[in-house]
Nucleic acid binder design. Structure first.
Length: 550
DNA sequence: CAGTATTGAATCATGTGTTC
DNA sequence: GAACACATGATTCAATACTG
């Protein structure tokens, strides 16, 4: 059905199909689970979201005769019925009745309904101690409160599944955001309602966050694979784990999964080595944010938007603050990297919707690794990284000790250099509506006197990479000063130069974009390349070492 | 080949309201 | 008044796909 529906419909129902090669690969895990079935036992392989039966396609007839499958989408049900109906042990519902078709869905096949949980066909196996249960599923992942849904104002409309019986039950036991995701509901309910014996198994496709960050389950990891989400008919590279969980309690904090990409030309799996998945336990905001209270009399000033300028109008959720030692506002929230540019920002004043803290002159340097870490996914876009690597404050004790001892002094200055030359630093210099002059202190423009960054960066012992970046910055600044809009009274960072000085217009005859300052544009592009290389070689390894990313 | 257009599966911290 | 529960709500960028 993924070809039949529009994008949002697809997202609502989570219809993304499993590539044949991935489905076949995961049969290794299913067969390992079958091998564990005690002698003399019957077993069933249950798939509550079978779609058109992709996962089951590679099973032998004998294995298929143990399968119990269902799908909630009517046209998929028709296909499933035709392809596997005669071979599987049960398809739910077994035959089509007059009321089976229900507004495009299949009556009685909604795995999240009470009716389904109590389905007698499945229940007979659950109740039978001589039967082993193996769940084998690629559940839908629908995060209907996601940024994209919100942009299209569809969050409410797309969230009807949240009214379901299973979600209601899950919320009684699982607190927090884990229940926001439809995929998590499947995983939770799988363990809750279907697995009962130590030899029962769950082989499930999902991004790792349910185990890594949300700690939704505490079962024994037997084996797993990492697959590229792109081959699930999506447009993004990200990591999907297919894991074999055994129904035995376990407290491992780190697992390894074997990664496989697909070469579309040859139609073969390409091994990409072993990837570690480490659990995360603490967020930056809990540990690293500067929580020093702000007196009421300092709660004046302006709020800033994501573009670094003053935000006027709209919903203002945050309170501004102004004080001699406040130099900006940093946001580095959430553990995942799904919306890196929303989840991290560096602004001259409080972000209008909060989720951050005020950067202060006395300790801003030790806060910068949070900003640096928040840029990881932008410069490491391989499919193995997104949805596997996350942010954490788990290394805080070691980090704080090494900051205190001075061991990390050079590293912090490297972070400073990166922060001052990276585009996502949206601090800008301007006069606010409150009449105050806001000056960007985290940039390397000394035209109007040294910024705090310039003062501190003197301590950096520059290697070749640092020298190259500093030189390139000088070139950028030189050309920026020749731009028409350049204002000598302002102190410019890279982003402000990009936004205000690196202007362009469209040639009326050719329709081409003409950069008003080609040299400036070229110099900026050169700087970006240098900064990216610098980040990955000098900063990322230390961020991993101290578990800012893991 | 260069320039242009399009794209992003898969939240969570926060404030506020509610309950005890 | 503490603890809990839940509704709320927001791009930017680089990479890639496409076009001529």
């Amino acid at each position: 059905m993924d070809k039949l529906n529009d994008t949002l419909q697809k997202k609502n129902l989570g219809a993304f199909y499993t590539h044949k090669l991935y489905a076949e690969k995961s049969l290794e895990l299913v067969r390992a689970a079958i091998a564990r079935v005690p002698t003399g036992n019957d077993y069933i392989i249950l798939d509550r979201c079978a779609g058109t039966g992709n996962l089951e396609a590679g099973l032998t007839d004998e294995e298929l005769s143990h399968c119990v499958v269902s799908t909630v989408e009517y046209y998929e049900y028709k296909v499933l019925q035709e392809l596997l109906g005669a071979k599987v042990r049960h398809i739910i519902p077994p035959i089509e009745m007059t009321d089976t078709f229900n507004a495009g869905l299949v009556s009685g096949a909604d795995a999240l309904s009470k009716e389904y949980i109590e389905n007698p066909v499945i229940k007979q196996y659950i109740a039978n101690p001589q039967c082993t249960i193996i769940l084998f599923e690629n559940p839908p992942y629908a995060e209907t409160t996601s940024a994209e849904h919100q942009r299209q104002r569809q969050s409410k409309k797309s969230s009807t599944w949240k009214q379901s019986y299973v979600v209601t039950e899950m919320k009684k036991e699982v607190k927090g955001t884990a229940s926001n995701d439809l995929g998590n509901v499947f995983i939770w309910s799988g363990f809750k309602y279907y697995l009962r014996q130590p030899t029962d198994s769950y082989i499930v496709y999902s991004p790792v966050k349910y185990w890594k960050a949300q700690h939704l389950i505490d079962r024994k990891f037997v084996k797993g694979f990492a697959y590229n989400r792109r081959h699930f008919h999506t447009n993004i590279d990200a990591c999907i784990m297919c894991a074999y969980w055994q129904n035995i309690a376990d407290s491992r904090k780190e697992i390894e999964i074997a990664a496989y990409d697909i070469d579309d030309n040859t139609g073969t799996l390409v091994s990409c080595g072993l990837l570690p998945v480490k659990q995360v336990f603490t967020t930056y905001s809990k540990i690293y944010y500067d929580k020093r209270p702000i007196p009421d009399e300092q709660r004046t000033g302006i709020l800033a938007g994501l573009n670094g300028l003053e935000k006027v109008g709209g919903k203002q959720r945050n309170k501004p603050a102004t004080a001699p030692d406040i130099m900006g506002y940093m946001v580095a929230h959430s553990s995942g990297f799904d919306n890196p540019d929303l989840d991290s920002s560096l602004l001259i004043a409080a972000r209008y919707d909060g989720n951050g803290f005020f950067l202060r002159k006395d300790n801003y340097l030790e806060k910068l690794p949070m900003f640096c870490a928040s840029r990881y996914i932008t410069y490491n876009r391989a499919w193995t990284e997104r949805a596997r690597i996350m942010k954490s404050a788990d290394g805080a004790d070691r980090y704080n000790a090494d900051v205190a001892s001075g061991k990390l002094a050079q590293f912090l200055l490297k972070c400073l250099l990166f922060t001052c030359t990276e585009m996502q630093n949206h601090m800008r210099t301007f006069t606010g509506s409150d009449g105050r002059f806001y000056r960007d202190e985290l940039c390397l423009d000394g035209t109007n006197g040294k910024t705090i960054a310039l003062r501190d960066i003197k301590g950096l012992i520059p290697g070749d990479r640092e020298k190259a970046i500093l030189n390139q910055w000088e070139t950028v600044l030189q050309w920026a000063k020749k731009a028409e809009n350049y204002s000598p009274s302002l102190t410019y960072g890279v982003y402000q130069i990009y936004a205000e000085l690196d202007t362009s217009h469209v040639d009326e005859t050719t329709g081409n974009t003409i950069w008003d300052n080609v040299e400036l544009h070229t110099a900026l592009a050169g700087l970006k390349t240098l900064v990216k290389d610098y980040y990955n070689s000098e900063i990322v390894p230390v961020l991993f070492e101290y578990e800012f990313i893991k």
